[in-house]
Computed example of a mutant assay.
Amino acid sequence: MGKLTRGYIQVYTGNGKGKTTAAVGLGVRAAGDGYNVFLVQFLKSGFTGELESIKKLEPDFRIFRFEKKRGFFWTLNDSEKAELKKEIQAAYRFCLDALENNKCDVLIMDEIMGAISNELVSKEQVLQLIEAKPDNMELVLTGRNVPEEIVNKADLVTEMREIKHYFEKGVPAREGIEY
Rank of each mutant, 00 (worst) to 15 (best):
R62G: 08
T158K: 04
E162I: 07
L120M: 09
D135G: 13
V106R: 04
E162H: 12
L96E: 12
D110Y: 06
Q128N: 14
N118G: 06
E138Q: 15
A115I: 02
I150K: 00
K44R: 03
I108Y: 02
F66Y: 08
I54V: 15
R65N: 09
L139A: 03
V106H: 02
K153C: 07
I150A: 03
T158G: 06
H165D: 03
R161G: 07
N145M: 11
D135A: 14
S45F: 05
T142L: 01
E159P: 08
P59M: 07
R70N: 10
N152F: 09
A82W: 10
K153Y: 09
I163K: 15
L107Y: 03
K133C: 06
T75P: 03
L120Q: 02
H165A: 09
E52Q: 15
L43I: 11
F47Q: 06
K55H: 04
R65L: 07
I116P: 01
A91M: 09
K85F: 10
I112P: 03
K133H: 10
C95Y: 04
N101C: 10
W74D: 13
N145Y: 12
N152P: 06
I116F: 02
S122Y: 04
K55L: 09
S53P: 05
E119V: 08
Q89L: 14
R62M: 13
F61S: 02
L57F: 09
E58D: 05
N102H: 15
F94M: 12
F47W: 13
S122R: 09
F94V: 07
L129V: 02
T48N: 13
K56W: 10
P134M: 00
E124P: 02
T158R: 07
M109F: 09
V146Y: 00
K85T: 06
R70V: 03
I116E: 00
A132L: 03
S117P: 05
E83W: 06
K164V: 01
E111N: 10
E67A: 03
L127T: 00
S45I: 04
W74M: 13
I130W: 00
P147E: 02
N152A: 15
L57C: 11
D78T: 14
S53G: 14
R65F: 01
N152G: 11
I112Q: 00
I54C: 11
V121C: 03
L51C: 11
